[in-house]
Amino acid sequence: MPVFMKGNYIFVEPGRKCFEVSSNFTNYLELGIQGITKYYLEAKIENDEFKISGTLLDKNGEVLCRLKDNFIEASKGCNKEMTQYGYRIKEGNLVFEIQVENDLICHLKGTIYGESGEIVAQDREGELIILKGPAIIGKSGNAIGIKLD
């Protein structure tokens, strides 16, 4: 049974830096499991800075690029385009976009594919919707906000 949660603040206080995930606000997002799933995305706030790391795949499940703290470490034909408020990862078309609103809310846009080409997460009307686990929304030390299997 699908569960919809909106307007929650998960490990973040209103007015603090956060990521918007499915209309919820959180300090942390993890899609996939590092070293287990071929794709992986970690979005965290460290030293008051939004940091996104991970491995992005194309719709055929092939590795597009690896990100480490917002910088491309390895790429197979995709490039990064900086904007004033974030950046875009492109492979011809837009793959993924990070956009910071008023230095506070970080929006993640685009489509995250799994290793079989399935859609793991996708932005729909400006909201990042998580379609497939494993995923973690919110984290503080060893405490986890919401875990999706």
Partner: peptide, 12 residues
């Protein structure tokens, strides 16, 4: 201090 990058607001 830690300041936002004057080029890109994502970084400090």
């Amino acid at each position: 201090v830690s300041r936002p990058s004057h080029i890109n607001a994502l970084h400090r």
